[in-house]
Design a protein around this nucleic acid. Structure first.
Lengths: 347, 347
DNA sequence: ACCAGATTGGCAATGGTTTGTCGTAATTTG
DNA sequence: CAAATTACGACAAACCATTGCCAATCTGGT
């Protein structure tokens, strides 16, 4: 290796000149496996290394149309739920040799639409989590740009779904088996697809279990809103609550503690997602464990494989992956209080 | 607006043809303020909108040399500490109209060096957090690519430093004032610059405070390692410990609970960073609150302003920002236990 | 009217790479 | 050994937007 001082300025034609061949030969030697002889390839590679040649990605993607990067659009980078997604997509993007571009859409359909439009020109594909866009807008976007959506079910658009709806039923079952009959579902944003799905599932399950489940909300999916959600739950006189997500549940845990409501003796609390922190909050949260990171990985894999297949054939793979969740029982759920007031226990 | 069906294929020459002018005129109309007449500009803009023209970012950056994106390199996207950084840089990048590229360097100097080399060709600038690279390597890289480092102090390289060293002294002070005299510092990775800084500061402070402070470790900065760290602290017979970061501290909290060691009655625990979760773990963690997100924002601002100044003059701004931390006292610290054994309290 | 100077638009080169097409040399086959 | 085939490398045209430079037009001053 020579000095790297001018490495950034070395072009393919410098390499070509150094070897004494055409630029096309250099290009093919470096990118197209069997297109040039072994000896030529060796000479080119040697020269490239010697000169410290690094292909210019901009020029490369100008002709090839590939940018070797994918974008992840999330409503709110601040929310720990999306951290998992970021991890998963980041890891898998890297594994496939793709650059990972992160965009915060600020919980806004408009920002999301703009971001999608802008970013789609500079990436090979996009994965969108918890989109605020309409089905038709997403379907239209998917026709322009390779797209995978997470937690959204749309015809003709590859998607990965974390099946919290089914999981919620398990959670309700768990509460019912502990004797609870008055239960609240503290719901998330009205624009959330998973929120609607869950509520529908809960309604059905409540009926067949013979318990009553009130929908309360909507609440913003943040810890701050947890306090309001907690108060609302108390107002409804329930003995157990299912929260839209762990953030809300943890916020509520705090509020319950402030108000002297003991969890789980006075109130059982179930979260959703099993985010970072759910296992060490106080008390540790019974929650629906969602394979968040895996969802990110699967989505990325689907996207990448779609990118590769786009050359060959298979126009619409129409993939649809549904990831199961499971209930993780920790210490925030317990038997229904005997009376409506406090309960005298050995503790 | 016409159909967007072919929007992605509309080039500048299509617009030019539509207006009946040269491509150069279109380009100038859209990008160079006073270069064309108002009427012409209006016609061009109208035509561009009509055709759904979107400039190709690749082509644009090929000539301009700008990619309008910056990269953030972090050792481990999994670590909540970096979430704050991701948020801060993401938000600010977006505010300045830059794309945000996220790269995980896997706590490895080698991976980091490679990533830096690769990514630097496709971004305008890079911010590196908690670099594992040597000072000289970073200084060299900074000459090639606009660079801002976080938590690292290097000559001629703009940097933002979260001053945990000074904060640690405060923490030690706090512990000393509670009567503790045997204290452990559960240290982080040996390759961590801040770790070294902190330990140096602690040694001095311990001397002047008349307490003894043992360095124990190194430990990986993860919750799992917290258990080992906790055990080590117990082995040293200390009554208080300062942890390299909150992750480690929270992990230790769990371990202490398992072993029946009460916090803070038997053992005082101080974390560092005040990550998400530090306020709701059990007990809530006394910790050094670091302005993590702000650090990300400041670093990004420095980078962006450097990018803009690079045109004009000012070769090396040699910026250096030191952000103060403060001790947030919660419930994991308390008075030194009276004896070496358990302490009889009203609780 | 005439000219200096300012506006405004066009031509063409430029950036670095990929890729279709073609010629030539090497290799295999009959 | 000639003919058919293959392998290899070169030429040049894209890809799309930017920009230096020049020409034409227009302004206003004399």
């Amino acid at each position: 290796m020579r000095q790297d001082g001018d490495a950034s300025k070395v072009t393919i034609s410098d390499v070509a000149k150094s070897v004494g061949v055409a630029t096309s030969t250099v290009s093919r030697a470096l990118t197209q496996p069997g297109r040039v002889s072994e000896s030529m390839k060796a000479r080119v590679v040697a020269a490239a290394a010697e000169l410290g040649y690094r292909p210019n990605p901009q020029a490369r993607s100008l002709t090839s149309g590939r940018t070797h990067s994918i974008a992840l659009l999330v409503p709110d980078v601040t929310n720990p739920f999306y951290f998992g997604l970021i991890r998963g997509t980041q890891a898998q993007a890297k594994a496939h040799g793709y650059r990972h571009i992160l965009v915060d859409t600020e919980e806004s359909a408009e920002v999301e639409a703009t971001a999608l439009l802008e970013v789609s020109a500079s990436v090979d594909g996009v994965v969108i989590a918890a989109s605020r866009l309409s089905d038709s807008a997403l379907a239209a976007a998917a026709k322009q740009t390779p797209l995978v959506v997470i937690n959204r079910e749309i015809d003709q658009v590859p998607c990965v779904i974390i099946d919290t709806a089914t999981g919620m039923i398990q959670a309700l079952d768990h509460l019912a088996s502990l004797g609870h009959s008055e239960i609240a579902y503290l719901s998330g944003p009205a624009s959330s697809w998973s929120n609607r799905k869950r509520w529908r599932a809960l309604q059905q399950a409540a009926r067949s279990l013979g318990v009553t489940c009130h929908q309360v909300g909507p609440f913003a999916p943040t810890m701050q809103s947890g306090a309001a959600a907690a108060d609302a739950a108390v107002r409804y006189g329930v003995t157990a609550c299912l929260f839209f997500n762990d953030l809300l549940a943890i916020g509520a845990l705090k509020r319950f503690a402030e108000r002297g409501i003991r969890v789980p003796q006075d109130m059982s609390v179930v979260g959703c997602d099993d985010i970072f922190g759910a296992d060490f909050c106080n008390p540790p949260l019974t929650t629906l464990t969602a394979p968040i990171e895996q969802a990110g990985r699967v989505a990325t894999d689907m996207l990448v494989s779609a990118l590769h297949n786009s050359n060959t054939a298979v126009p619409v793979p129409r993939q649809r992956e549904k990831l199961p969740t499971h209930l993780t029982i920790r210490s925030s759920t317990g038997d229904r209080p005997a009376a409506s007031g406090k309960r005298a226990d050995s503790e």
